[in-house]
């Protein structure tokens, strides 16, 4: 390469292109997103946090909780579960249709299924398989119902009821997506944990309620207060089991920061439902854990009571 300017320009152009693709284009695409009006609840989602919780977010930042905890829920492509709710009047047609949908069933098993609705017909099927089955069965006069079936590990762990989407983070500054899960995901902590005392104890020493926990202690978010003889213990004092309790006459009081942090933790939830949160449909029925593969459900031959 003889030409210095060419080198400069080439590097500059490549660099600019990657910046446009990685930063500018996404900004143009979703930078103008607005809050979601959820009419049923009469709210604008995401909700603004209380002042205390906002300060708590700053405690979370300063303590670096996000080096161990993520705040994002992942979900796999959409799969559905199809349930036969009513066989209709023409049992023969329904059985024939069912055997087209479920080629693994013999006539007896299919008849048995059709006779005793409701029955799950497809457990984890992609969109087009579900559509086709629905068409076949409804044409035969039967009625079916489809529900979302796939969860993925995050949802199965109870870390959320749906995946998180970009709108969930509109009010966060900074955004604590996190990259490593040395601890559980916290995107919906407030939805599964409402106990302030439990959270304060977790911060004081995670091993109180969960022996062997690898989460760090945050004792400096609490102060020790010496009780004068005869003084009644403060209602704020942390109730601790004896092996973690301070010596008699001393009580552990959460600092303002600890309370703010807990207020923030309680405010963490991204479970409102709106159009953006439904995962895109797909025909692939993949779940790398090997559990959710599209697989015919064994017919439930025991009639329901």
């Amino acid at each position: 390469m003889k030409h210095g300017p060419l080198l400069f320009l080439g590097v500059f152009a490549a660099f600019f292109a990657s910046w446009v693709a990685g930063v500018l284009a996404p900004h143009l695409q979703i930078g103008g997103q607005s809050l979601v009006q959820i009419d049923d609840l009469g709210i604008q989602y995401p909700l603004d946090r209380t002042g205390e919780a906002k300060q708590g977010a700053q405690v979370y930042r300063a303590q670096g909780c996000h080096y161990c905890h993520t705040q994002q829920v992942l979900q796999e492509p959409l799969l559905s579960r199809l349930t036969l709710t009513d066989a209709g009047t023409n049992i023969t047609d329904a059985v024939a249709a069912l055997r087209k949908v479920r080629r693994d069933l013999d006539a007896d098993a299919a008849t048995e299924l059709v006779r005793h609705p409701p029955q799950v017909i497809l457990a984890h099927a992609g969109a087009s398989a579900t559509d086709q089955a629905t068409r076949l069965l409804t044409n035969a006069g039967a009625r079916v119902e489809s529900t979302i079936a796939n969860l993925g590990p995050d949802l199965r762990r109870g870390w959320g009821t749906r995946r998180t989407v970009s709108r969930d983070y509109l009010r966060d500054q900074p955004v604590f997506l996190g990259q490593i899960r040395l601890g559980p995901d916290l995107a919906n902590l407030g939805a599964r944990q409402t106990n302030t005392t439990w959270l304060l104890r977790k911060l004081y020493n995670a091993r109180i309620d969960l022996p062997g926990s690898t989460m760090p202690r945050y004792p400096y978010l609490f102060t020790e207060r010496r009780l004068r003889p005869g003084q009644a213990p403060s209602p704020d004092a942390l109730a601790l089991p004896s092996e973690f309790a301070p010596p008699a006459g001393i009580e552990i009081i959460p600092t303002r920061e600890a309370r703010q942090l807990v207020a923030y933790l309680l405010s963490l939830r991204s479970d409102a439902l709106f159009y953006e949160v439904f995962p895109p449909p797909t025909d692939q029925c993949r779940d790398k854990t090997g559990r959710d593969h599209e697989r015919p459900v064994r017919p439930n031959l025991v009639p329901r009571p």
Partner: peptide, 26 residues
């Protein structure tokens, strides 16, 4: 780009993370 778009004139929401991911890659 990384510092301006995340701490001086922060982008909205997850775009900060996009700017951060771009910065880390560079």
């Amino acid at each position: 780009s990384g510092y301006v778009l995340t701490s001086f004139l922060p982008l909205r929401g997850v775009l900060q993370a996009a700017a951060q991911a771009w910065y880390l890659q560079q």
